[in-house]
């Protein structure tokens, strides 16, 4: 399997604090990878670094889209990273609360469409066609995610679980090859988590989109991840399959603290 995302020596300093310390990580085509670690381990910083919100202090981020060449993307502005095929969701939901569910997804289509000011004013044939395609496509995404019947509701009136799903739908609208999910199951009840699990698996198999997610729900991480990376204090301390991580003493130590032998 091909590697589609690769970081080499990725380091992020905030003043004197190393939030990320030489992290090497790779995601392969068709994988679900999980990034875990205690609070403050630098997981979200890692996401922010690869999506361009922070330029990394050192190290490189490479992407190799399935239909493209390997490219270095550090320092690219956020919207260009999205255009290259990395889409993300946020730990604290960041929808457009006063726009409808459908419109939220339509914004996701922005980077795949072209209509400009003149197109908007004259509303020529091409623009109308594009606009129609945006609506149809966005609606289709909502259907697949299971939010179609809420298409005309305002995003802020959605229940919590649906807001999380809408964020995923919006990210899918940008046509990514890799979806970055920042704690998608946070605050969900077990039933919602199960539905989410099923959704993530479906995205992987039906849409051929690979997934890298930060998650604290260990049951979910263990059951759906192909590989897991563990961060602690900005360093990658382990990687491997669910079973390997489960047994790894270093990981257990990071999570539960050192054992004292009397």
């Amino acid at each position: 399997m091909e590697t589609i995302l690769e970081t080499k020596n990725l380091t992020m300093n905030f003043g004197g604090i190393k939030a990320l310390d030489r992290v090497d990580l790779d995601v392969r085509q068709g994988e679900i990878c999980a990034l875990i670690g205690p609070n403050g381990a630098g997981k979200t910083t890692f996401f922010n670094c690869i999506t361009g919100i922070y330029p990394p202090s050192e190290g490189d981020v490479f992407i190799s889209p399935p239909a493209g060449k390997r490219k270095r993307i550090n320092g690219l502005p956020v919207h260009r990273v999205t255009a290259r095929g990395l889409a993300r969701t946020f730990q604290n939901i960041r929808l457009f609360p006063d726009m409808t569910v459908l419109e939220n997804v339509m914004v996701g289509r922005h980077c795949r469409t072209k209509a400009g000011v003149l197109g908007a004013i004259f509303r020529d044939r091409i623009t109308r066609k594009e606009e129609k395609a945006v609506v149809t496509r966005s609606y289709a995404i909502l259907e697949r995610i299971g939010l179609a019947d809420l298409a005309n509701a305002l995003a802020r009136n959605l229940p919590y679980g649906d807001q999380r799903r809408l964020e995923i739908a919006r990210a899918l609208a940008t046509e990514p090859f890799l979806l970055l999910l920042d704690e998608p199951a946070a605050g969900m009840n077990p039933r919602e988590t199960e539905a989410l699990e099923e959704l993530i698996l479906r995205i992987k198999t039906e849409e051929q989109i690979s997934i890298l997610m930060i998650e604290h729900d260990m049951r979910m991480v263990m059951s759906i991840s192909d590989r897991i990376f563990v961060l602690d204090y900005g360093k990658k301390i382990a990687e491997g399959t669910a079973a390997e991580i489960w047994e790894n003493p270093v990981v257990i130590k990071a999570y539960l603290g050192e054992e004292f032998d009397a």
Binding site: G119, I121, A171
Partner: peptide, 27 residues
């Protein structure tokens, strides 16, 4: 016309949440 267009949507999204808007590929 501007309000109900791709660019109008982007403005609205920008007003609502700048970070999310950028992450959705809006320049």
């Amino acid at each position: 016309r501007l309000q109900n267009s791709r660019i109008g949507r982007a403005w609205l999204a920008l007003r609502e949440d700048e970070v999310a808007c950028e992450a959705m590929g809006v320049n």
